[in-house]
């Protein structure tokens, strides 16, 4: 457990210090959510209806676009080779890196979400549901995005390509995240069923993301 904790601390420190870009994701999220009313108009009723979806899409884009440096910085300075040669399985390394990345960039999104939800004219229950689904669901986006980051690690400009590759895979997370949120607001539909499926998706993407990203990193190394 000790090397993993050390790795987590290292990743956390690297991404929160100057130049780490941890808060860029939250800033991007703020801007996306601010721009959408300019597109759809300031109708508060409409915004309240599509608000959870806007927050989810904003979080999705912010997560995916912040992932391009997840493995690339380590590859550039050689740390990735050391991590691969270490005794800790690469899959666990990937999981820990994702968790640290999520703590540094995903968690600020979740914390910013209730404030942005006020802009979207959401009711308190809807705000609660949005924050809950984002808190549970954004790690899934990070784990899936890690696959894209690992596949494009050797490319100089992999950021956009990685988003193209991963966005189709994130549809289930988006669907169940938004479904759970809207289910919490509209009366007859149950909240728990889509929410539990969302939780299942997170666990599933943890496994798939860790295995696939580790495999992609190994293949790109030799």
């Amino acid at each position: 457990m000790k090397p993993l904790a050390a790795l987590f601390l290292r990743e956390w420190r690297l991404s929160t210090r100057v130049g780490g870009g941890a808060l860029m994701g939250a800033l991007f999220f703020l801007i996306v959510v601010t721009v959408i009313p300019f597109g759809v108009g300031p109708d508060l009723k409409l915004l309240a209806r599509i608000g959870p979806a806007i927050l989810w899409i904003g979080a999705l884009l912010a997560t995916l676009l912040s992932l391009d440096r997840l493995f690339q910085a380590d590859r550039d300075d050689g740390a990735l080779d050391l991590l691969m040669m270490g005794e800790t399985p690469l899959e666990l390394v990937v999981v820990v890196k994702c968790l640290a990345h999520w703590a540094a960039t995903g968690l600020p999104l979740v914390i910013a979400a209730p404030f942005l939800a006020v802009f979207m004219n959401l009711d308190p229950p809807a705000i609660g549901a949005t924050v809950a689904t984002l808190l549970v669901g954004t790690p899934a986006l990070t784990f899936l995005g890690a696959i894209g980051a690992a596949l494009t690690v050797s490319l100089r400009r992999g950021g956009l390509l990685s988003a193209i590759l991963i966005l189709p895979l994130t549809t289930p997370v988006l669907i169940f995240g938004v479904s759970a949120t809207t289910a919490a607001v509209t009366e007859p539909t149950p909240f728990l069923a889509p929410f539990l499926i969302l939780v299942a998706l997170v666990l599933f993407s943890l496994v798939v993301g860790a295995i696939a990203a580790a495999q992609a990193l190994r293949l790109s190394a030799n």
Binding site: L151, L169, P172, I175, V208, Q215, A216, L219
Partner: peptide
């Protein structure tokens, strides 16, 4: 090298396709 990257992505896609289908049906 390209083939290996594409192979990983293809398999991840193959695992995800049933889930995508299921979630789209739900939606």
């Amino acid at each position: 090298r390209g083939a290996k990257a594409v192979a990983v992505l293809t398999l991840v896609g193959a695992i995800n396709l049933p889930i995508i289908k299921f979630s789209v049906d739900w939606w």
